[in-house]
Write a protein that binds this DNA or RNA. Structure first.
Lengths: 109, 109
DNA sequence: TTATTACATCGCAATATTACGATAATAAAT
DNA sequence: ATTTATTATCGTAATATTGCGATGTAATAA
């Protein structure tokens, strides 16, 4: 099949999974890290930075945009991309909620 | 192609992506949440809990095991699964490193 | 020994993802 | 108006993922 049965799970579980999927490719992780490190916003010279084709980078940027983690603003002929701080914090909390749900002093295993 | 070019990225980027991929399915998120909530370790009555076939659950459990997030110990005829606290903390830090790398007071956008 | 129970693995079909060349689309420069 | 530069989208090939029935495996029960 290859189709996830989203109706079996809670909205939050589906949301976390969808967000995690965006982090689940090293190119997208690299893009995010690059946007963080370059404190000024950077346009698509990511093509130079990473070794992927322009079309491929553009596709990854779209996925990051779709989940809301980054925003792009047209700057003349090029586009400035940057991280959306609001969404960034939101996503951080999503993961934090899951991670902190596990009490380190659990007696099993 | 459909094959990720891991050689283009750092080890840490690849590792984070690989771990994120495990979180990128609601069934696996649900399994983790169930293991957290059931503070005693639980065997595969996840099949009852989630609405997926036994083979499918087993497959998801394997992926969680392969990345090290859970451990299974044979208990007679059944298997007790539980979260590995060490690895759990490790993975939490992986994400935390990325999230905290972004300073909320960034002047762009 | 022969069931029975609980999981794991195999094999397959349906679908999703990754990557890239080719081709738009848009704005500035000549 | 034509070229140039930058990004987006389309189409496609290669590969990966998801889900499950069927089957295998190992331990207990009868």
């Amino acid at each position: 099949m290859g189709v996830t049965k989203t109706d079996l799970f809670t909205e939050k579980q589906n949301e976390l999974a969808k967000v995690a999927k965006v982090f689940a490719h090293p190119a997208r992780v690299a893009i995010l890290e690059y946007l963080i490190q370059a404190n000024s916003c950077i346009n698509g010279d990511l093509v130079q930075e990473l070794g992927l084709a322009q079309a491929t980078i553009s596709q990854h940027l779209r996925e990051l945009k779709e989940i809301g983690l980054i925003k792009g603003s047209i700057e003349g002929v090029s586009v400035n991309y940057c991280i959306d701080p609001i969404r960034w914090a939101e996503v951080q909390n999503l993961f934090q909620d899951l991670f902190s749900g596990f009490p380190k002093i659990s007696g099993c295993c």
